[in-house]
Amino acid sequence: MKLRDYIIRRLVLLIPILIGVTLLTFTISHVIPADVARHFAGGAKANPETIARIREEMHLDEPLYKQYGYYLNDLFHGDLGECYTERRPVTEAIKQYLPATAELTIIAMILAIFIGIITGVVSAVKRNSWIDHVTRLIAITGVSMPIFWLALMLQLAFAYKYPILPLDSRLGIGVVAPNHITGLYVFDSLVTGNFTALKSSIYHLILPSITLSFASLAIILRITRSSMLEIVRSDYIRTARAKGLRERTVIYKHALRNALIPTITVAGINFAYLLGGAVLTETIFNWPGMGRFAVAAVNNLDFPSVMGFTLLAAIVMVTANLIVDLLYSVLDPRVRLGD
């Protein structure tokens, strides 16, 4: 099957899932809350006129299935509702905040993949050595640590006690953001040759991205280690050795290439979970992204924004899964697209 056909088919298969997701978000937003109109109007402090207007606008007096129809129709037209805290459409807020989150999660993912794979391989090759024990302990602590606590501890250590890194936000005070191309500061400042902004943005990325990558790094390390351990015992690794290849080639070419298959799958699934982590990381590092926006929305009972964020997370997650499947078929010749 051709790649294009496969992607199209997968996208078509996504439709029922996405419809399911909207059913879920609809249930969360229209069925569960005791007083939907009040919820959407901003909670307890909302005034009666707004509540009445919302009731009208959202057709809350009509039967649920009709409400769902309106809801879908709005979504279809890219209307995620009105963000009460910022008094503008949720979509606009998303457009503004998304790049910051994208930059943070992408950098965190890259860190997690690189460091995770390298340490995973070393840990497997040096099985039961002290390196292995230390790495495994770090890995297991990594998935046992509340990410927000790690963030606070890093701030305490590297921004307060030994102030070598900035405390929070994306750029230093007085540094002008690079011209907007993608909204990813590192990329934009690189392209426009704005080195002041480049330096400042990288500087500001260090603590948040380390924080965010830690758990994923631990998970990637684990899966790399365990698949390497299994693979180095396989017949084809014995063949590679019997050929006379040096151990380095055997490990980094023959074994790692196979170990990457499960690793990439896990990494892809993790990308979506990074979004959950971003909620907490951004809050602490005052990172002007989607996560911080969502937390503010939750605390202000800004329901449309919360639901908008949830839907967006779902879309990112299914896209990540699609990309993983494509990568999978590239990495593993035994997998044929469409099977």
Binding site: D235, Y236, H254, R257, D332, R334
Partner: peptide, 10 residues
Amino acid sequence: EPMSSLNPVF
């Protein structure tokens, strides 16, 4: 086992 003795990804 020729199947498992050849590296599946090359």
